[in-house]
Design a protein around this nucleic acid. Structure first.
Lengths: 268, 268
DNA sequence: TAGCCCTACTTGTTCAGACCAGTTCAGTTT
DNA sequence: AAACTGAACTGGTCTGAACAAGTAGGGCTA
């Protein structure tokens, strides 16, 4: 169960192993999972490690723990790919089995504008890799993404083909750039003419405008992007958690999915 | 600094104390905070407690920790009220000092529809408290909220005056119902006639449609709401964190604020 | 001087053990 | 039969200690 020779921390290994069991539905939602002491024995590690792993699962929304009773697989089952990723929605869609594709509109190195500079926290005019992409689910264009990455942080990005590849995956695997935090802003806007043409919708149609800034562990801004999603084909999901410490640790993720049946509230 | 007689866990007290120091800007963004051992001495607790408190702060996005160097107040400073709350945006606005008010349109006990029943995970027809509210910032109507709470979980809710009070606050303080998790869905929609009239905008104007389900610690769904926010006056913010365990702990919150200056990306 | 290594300091991971506080349930008392 | 008691479970909090691993700086060597 745990490779004691590996340099991967035990609790990370345990977390993965338990997550796997839950994902494969060996444990049904609502089912009690083994007690902490049982897991200690089974995995051959101390309670510290087991508790740290369980904490990760709790933060990931996979389990609920209750004093005096035990830990249980979360009832309202969370789609793991949602909680999992800080990555873009492209991966989410791919994981759902929806055929998705990307068309790269621009990919160039340019001096950044003042506004992008402010978001990336660099001097205006600093060279950035500017990549504009149009993304499809099936044959329908769904989102228009305009992303910026400081050139010096990853020169290789200027020439890589992102048609069938996630930028996050590239940054992480090829450049060793680990994204640890991010902030996203969402609002609703109306499509202008250019946007309408690209997304094959009428001018004025509601769009979700998403601005995102991602940071490395040391606080360096690694990427800023501005994305427009078709409102009638996109839905964003956020998962929140509160801990007893009032301040709560929270939990979230985002995803695009085919629009679910609309809820008929009074006003709609 | 820490009340050893209190029944509040030391790490919770320490978390609050440190948070206070950061909030009051005794420590500037980017500044290194005292080492773990220093905090142990200062607070008179073990390293476990200090680390647990620092972990909370890290999850809350208030600090960044780096092996071998220390912990630092987050550079891109996070608005605390954002990270803080799983509560509604009403409190957020109030905390920002914007004059906000609420008009209760309906407040009644009704058998729930099939769709609401599905969201709340109860039998169709179960009695729910149905509260419809229109919320203002200044004199402008900003959001239209349609919320449902199972009547049996909190009968008192049927008669309380929520004009100047947050529902979450009421549920927590008066009913002892602690919300531990929630899930929210966002999309962009166009205002229909009724919505347009209530929000004092033109029909077809983009709105953010927000659906939310909140859960108690035991997994019981406590509230479902469907809200419509004026797209040109609302902006939602999500803060994400990833832990080394791949699976990430994340972090998020939401808020309404006066719309910030628009970013001019290529397409806007 | 340029480069290397050693040391001291930091956070990260792990251990073994202790006690507290809810939960459950069987057994006893009323 | 109903109510109380207490032991045996669970997860929650805390201690003190140890070693690993990244960082920074001083001092030595080439």
């Amino acid at each position: 169960m745990i490779d004691f020779e590996s340099n991967i921390p035990y609790y990370v290994q345990l977390t993965s192993a338990l997550k796997e069991r839950i994902r494969l539905s060996r444990w049904e939602p609502g089912k009690k999972i083994p007690g902490e002491m049982d897991l200690c024995q089974e995995a051959g590690v101390s309670r510290t490690v087991v508790r740290q792993a369980l904490r990760e699962l709790e933060l990931g929304g996979l389990i609920v723990r209750r004093k005096g009773k035990g830990a249980f697989v979360s009832e309202p089952k969370i789609n793991e790919s949602l909680v999992q990723e800080l990555t873009g929605s492209f991966q989410d869609m791919a994981e759902r089995g929806l055929p998705s594709s990307t068309r790269v509109l621009h990919q160039r190195v340019v001096p950044c504008t003042d506004k992008v500079a402010r978001y990336l926290n660099v001097s205006p005019g600093t060279r950035v890799v500017d990549i504009d992409r149009l993304r499809f689910v099936g044959k329908a264009p769904i989102q228009l993404v305009n992303s910026y990455v400081p050139f010096d942080l990853c020169p290789a990005l200027a020439n890589v083909d992102l048609t069938n590849r996630s930028m996050y995956e590239f940054l992480e695997q090829e450049c060793g750039l680990w994204i640890s935090r991010g902030r996203r802003y969402l609002e609703a806007v109306a499509a202008n003419e250019v946007e309408a043409r690209l997304l094959e919708i009428d001018k004025g149609t509601p769009l979700v405008c998403l601005d995102s800034i991602s940071y490395l562990e040391n606080g360096t801004a690694i990427e800023y992007y501005h994305a427009l999603h078709r409102g009638d084909r996109s839905r964003f999901e956020v998962e929140l958690l509160r801990t007893r410490a009032q301040s709560q640790g929270l939990n979230s993720a985002e995803a695009d999915i085919e629009k679910l049946p609309q809820i008929d509230a009074n006003f709609r």
